[in-house]
Structures are given as C-alpha cells and as structure tokens.
Write a protein that binds this DNA or RNA. Structure first.
Ligand code: SF4
Ligand code: SF4
Lengths: 150, 150
DNA sequence: GCATATACGACTTTTTTGATCGTATTTATA
DNA sequence: TATAAATACGATCAAAAAAGTCGTATATGC
C-alpha cells in the first residue's frame, strides 16, 4: 500500500501543481489514506526531494519538481526497493542466488524486468496524468493465449 | 520464495522427465531449498495435479503432465494468487479500489499486467527449459531511458 | 520386519506491513 | 504576542503473511 498511497498523493499534487500547498488532511481524505500513515509517506517524499512543504496556517504539501521530471519508476523503486519481479534480476536491489549459473526460468523474469523498467522509467507523472482512467472492460479483456485469468 | 522454490523443483523434474522419480532429499539438495519446507510445496504441486509421487524405497516425485503442458503463468498464479502487479488490475485476484474511476496510474499497471500475462502464459516448462541461462551482462545491461538502475 | 520414502497437520519464528500516538516545531494572522 | 493550524518525527504497536520446523502416520520394496 505504501507505494500506492505515495502515488495517489503525488498525482493529487500534480493536479494542483502551481496552485499552492494542500494540507495533508485534504490529501488523506481525497485519496482514502489513513492520515497519520500518510504523514510518514509524505515525509519520505519530501526527503527524497519530490515534494516540499510549508508548516503553519495555510500550509501543506506541494510538488518540488515539475511533473515532467518525476518518473513513476523512480518512485516505485524508492518505496519497493526495485522494479524487478525478483531480486536476482534487479540492479538496484540485486541479491545473488546460488542457482544463477544454470537456472532456466530466470530469463522469463529478466524479460519482465526489461519491460517493466522500459515502461516505468519513461512514464513521467505528467505523461501518466494526461492519460484517461482505465475502463472496466480493459481489465477484463485478457489477450493471453488461453484467455484465462490473470 | 515459495513460488521460486516450486519452479526450481519443477524444472529439476523437467530435466529428469521420463527417467523415474526423484526423492525430495535430492530435490532439496540440488536446488538449495530446506527439505522440510519443500515437502509442503511438493504436496501443493501434487494436489494441483502437476506432479505425482511414489512412496517407499526408490520413490520420489515426477512430473504428472508433459512439460509442454504446464505454463509458468499457471504455476506463479497458484502460488502468488495472481500475476498482476496490483490487485485492482487482476482478474483472478481482483480487489476493488475506491479510486478506480479516476485513478490515472492504474493504466501503467494494466500495461505491465498485459505483458506479464502474455509472456508467462505462453511459456511452457519445456520451452523455458530449452533456453539458455542468463548471462551476467544481460542483467547489468539496462536499456531503459536513463540507463539508470533497476 | 526393516529401511526409506511420502503425507500432513500443528507449531514456531521471523519479517513485513500498516497504522497509531505523543509531542515538538513552525507559521499566519487576529 | 497569543493562538490556531499546520508539518516533523521518533517510538511503538498490532496484525498478517511468509518462512521454516517437528512429530508422527502411512505406504512401498526388498
Ligand atoms: S532460482 Fe533462478 S530465478 Fe530464482 S532466484 Fe535463483 S536464479 Fe533467480
Ligand atoms: S489507487 Fe489506482 S492503482 Fe492503486 S489500487 Fe486504486 S485504482 Fe489501483
């Protein structure tokens, strides 16, 4: 949830970009996140340099960088440690495995990692915000070989 | 780990397909998995119909289906619940979210889900086993926009 | 009958996640 | 300058999930 909550808050700030700070109470309400929990997340985002804040009356949080300059990949990577589906194919969170030299299915995970990073590191908050919400049918419509579940 | 351990064991059985059962002691040793833990995993695999077993001397586990007929996607889905990176874009493990109607970044996750399922549901154990292990350089070589970490 | 397998529920430990609380500090404004 | 409203931040907690262990029952081949 942490990563998801962080993204929710960030996109709310993208929407309000240039229009002054938003108090955490408002961020929590709008995004359906426990307020006290969101405090920690916002603090992380601040320390990472993506948002800034003003205390006191009329204070709150606002983006510290342009929405075009924050990539989804960076955000996820900071909260989850890495984008890869498993640590043995990650760079930032690499963890050696004893089976590496002969493991066969590692290649499948590598393929997925490559796609995930390609997508996530090209997607700035601005780009993503410009897109339309997902329609239900898009989730249900599965184009994999057997039409099976996901 | 569970999913990874399951895959390790399965691929060992693929390698030995048609050459009699392999005792769990051997599976645990070869794949660096705690033996007692692997017992539970093998039992799951058996109940799911992918492997079968023989007790007693000269007993052990063996594939119950042809390696061409078990897909990686099925395996992962059974152990992890779903392939999607987040439940709101999953079919088998779908969980409603209050933000769905206006969430923007959900589309990014949907894109990833589509790729993951496409790859995983087309990859049979046989196909994957036929491939070569991953070289270190392939993991290090990142082709995302900024050449940054993964 | 004995050695060697799997079968399987109960249990324990560890890690992760999600969340709460108390209190200090800063700021605008009346 | 008092006060109300905001962030700052460490301490702590609880629940859940994941990882791993144990004891013992049962089946099989020789
Ligand atoms: S078994 Fe293969 S995929 Fe799993 S961690 Fe080891 S190298 Fe990576
Ligand atoms: S906030 Fe968006 S991505 Fe996250 S769970 Fe809700 S709909 Fe899905």
């Amino acid at each position: 949830m942490r990563t998801d909550y962080a993204l929710r808050a960030l996109f709310t700030l993208v929407e309000a970009y240039g229009r002054g700070p938003i108090p955490i109470r408002e961020l929590a309400r709008r995004n359906d996140v426990p307020k006290r929990f969101l405090e920690h997340i916002m603090l992380d985002l601040k320390n990472l340099g993506w948002v800034d804040s003003l205390p006191g009356k009329a204070g709150g949080y606002f983006l510290a960088r342009q929405p075009t300059e924050i990539m989804m990949g960076e955000v996820v990577r900071c909260f989850d440690g890495y984008l890869a589906p498993i640590a043995c194919v990650s760079v930032t969170g690499y963890k050696r495995c004893t089976q590496e030299s002969f493991c066969r299915f590692r290649r499948v995970f590598l393929d997925i990692r490559n796609h995930v990073t390609r997508v996530m590191d090209r997607a700035s908050l601005a780009t993503v915000f410009a897109g339309a919400p997902v329609r239900d049918s898009e989730v249900a419509n599965v184009d994999c070989i057997d039409g099976g579940g996901i």
